[in-house]
Design a protein around this nucleic acid. Structure first.
Lengths: 343, 343
DNA sequence: ATTCATTCATAAATCGGTTTAGTAAATCGG
DNA sequence: CCGATTTACTAAACCGATTTATGAATGAAT
């Protein structure tokens, strides 16, 4: 990186001791160290402004004090919040984080996993694309500490942290029904991952439970870029929905854009409930009803579980754990009956 | 990280060649390599599923193919966009990025710089807090490839990428003046860094040029948490502003919250112009006039400059460069006269 | 005086690659 | 056919730390 790198050997020489002793000092093994020696080393380090090379240390110790996060889509607010919480946790524990973004691309995910392994990271937290099961399995077989977040992977036993997506949608629909809605639609990104499937499943169950028919046309799942078109078709029908649930903040942006373009009144013509903590939820008119996932808690817990597993270091590995976190429905104006004319 | 790590020695043995030869193979130095040997190595690697240990490589090569970004506030959309662009650039060049967030805390910044150096990163991109000049100087002296972004540092000659903040505010004010505004206020976070100082300076100059008095009460700079209070005082006065410029997206959130609370009509009672690319700009009512910084371009250019400097590797270092990028005023409804009654 | 702990410090091996210097065999030019 | 070159490969040093085995010095106990 630069020129005149000071190494441990330089410190040792200046202090008039051996490298080994300097190493003991750095690792705070003072048990059998003379006070005099200690002071000399301290001084030498200060004078030379020595900083240990952690690459060398990592090589010998076989750990890097670095973990990797592979996130499917960093533009998604929920992901950002989780990453931030994970970073905060590891920061407190002297562990660094490398953040990788896959854009939901399986090939990219594969490359990043390999890269992180080559870099000898101590563990990996993964928002899995779900399209690399063979590799996930290999990671497990190698005993690489790994944790899945936001999405379960079928058939892979591994630490997993998810939200209670089904229940969250169920609650949202009950709420909408209570406001008098019967024609409720849901829009999510493609059903490639567990969280979206569960949300859809929550929709289906809630509708059935309420004696409402889960209409296929009201269950939209497609690429973000296609949402606009799907809404167009949906609202061209005679039988329009009176309420809609957005699967995440990116979906909501599309819905809001459509709504604005077509001057649809919220909540009068259309009630809206959105997954994720929207920073603008309180600032929009009307304010937005949201389903808040405890992202900070989920991220921090992810950090804790992975850290545990790393420290177990292969032996006495805890059994794979699956933690499910509850979401919270925060009712605001976009779904509230008070402003909605009763039919 | 895991158990049965395959090393180069294993590959060498299986292929019946020496470590050196395997190394040559990995580094694609095929010049003097028999086709037979090549094939044997290829096969051994495949059979053992060997993956090189880049920690070991880095130790010898004295480069890690990793750079660090130290960002002052990752919650700030502009920072996120820049980081994303930098990551994209380096991703394309096989270089990894470690992202560190300082929360504008000088002490954290110092620790992160030291950590990144200990990790032997090849270079650092810094949104400087501006409070660690001694350390920035040390980095320069050590010839650590470094680049400042978003903020200049007084007295440190180093690659720097900034926006033309002064001109951007100047343009915004001219625009507002053209809409008939004379009482224009500006709100930013504390004036600790060049970009904010320049914006304030742009305000001062524009007002003077237009023959308007830059009133100190209209030039607000304080912590985000105190903005609400300051607005309270500002609008309690007889002489309220009719237009306001928000220094970034976080400032705007506060302003919007205040405006909403107090049912201030935008743009009729108050015109609003905001720095940064607000994802909701088009979705709010009214839509928001923004000052767009070319974050993607700035980030990518930052990557390019730093990469150049890394590749120069101490010798033939290019002279420090300072690149200034122009912003773009995107006029929308929140500052447009069409909906504003002319006084 | 001899034995045994205890304290303090070090030499040398090690981690897993890269790189340099060198060697043996094959090829070539005259 | 002989020396010079080129080709194909390798042994060993090296990167900068950690760790292990070992040794010297001191003191206490026998």
């Amino acid at each position: 990186m630069s020129s005149n790198k000071v190494t441990m050997a330089d410190v040792a020489e200046k202090a008039g001791v051996s490298k080994s002793t300097v190493s003991q000092y750095l690792n705070k093994r003072y048990e059998y160290m003379g006070a005099e020696t200690k002071k000399k080393i301290e001084q030498a380090i200060a004078e030379l402004d020595y900083q240990p090379n952690v690459v060398a240390r990592s090589l010998k110790q076989k750990r890097t004090s670095t973990i990797g996060i592979i996130v499917a889509n960093i533009m998604h607010s929920f992901s950002t919040e989780i990453c931030r919480a994970i970073e905060d946790y590891f920061q407190e524990h002297g562990i660094n984080v490398i953040l990788c973004n896959t854009d939901e691309d399986a090939e990219k995910e594969k490359r990043y996993i390999e890269m992180l392994q080559a870099k000898q990271v101590d563990g990996i937290i993964l928002f899995p694309t779900g399209k690399n099961n063979a590799i996930y399995k290999k990671l497990r077989k190698q005993h690489t500490p790994i944790l899945f977040i936001d999405r379960k992977v079928e058939g892979i036993k591994s630490d997993t942290i998810v939200a209670n997506n089904e229940a969250a949608v169920f609650e949202a629909i009950e709420h909408l029904a209570k406001q008098g809605h019967a024609k409720i639609a849901i829009v999510t990104a493609p059903l490639l991952i567990s969280s979206r499937i569960e949300r859809m499943e929550g929709y289906r169950k809630a509708m059935k439970k309420l004696g409402l028919e889960p209409k296929p046309e009201f269950m939209i799942h497609c690429e973000i870029s296609q949402i606009r078109g799907r809404l167009q078709s949906l609202f061209a029908e005679a039988d329009k929905p009176t309420a809609i649930i957005a699967g995440n903040d990116l979906v909501m942006l599309e819905i809001l854009a459509y709504v604005k373009e077509n001057r649809i009144q919220i909540p009068n013509e259309l009630a809206l409930v959105v997954f994720d903590n929207i920073r603008f939820a309180d600032l929009l008119t009307p304010t937005l009803t949201t389903i808040s996932q405890p992202s900070a808690k989920m991220g921090r817990t992810a950090g804790e579980l992975l850290h545990e597993r790393i420290q177990a270091g292969g032996q006495a590995e805890p059994a794979p754990r699956e933690l499910v976190f509850d979401c919270k429905l925060i009712v605001r104006e976009s779904s509230s009956a008070s402003t909605r004319p009763i039919n």
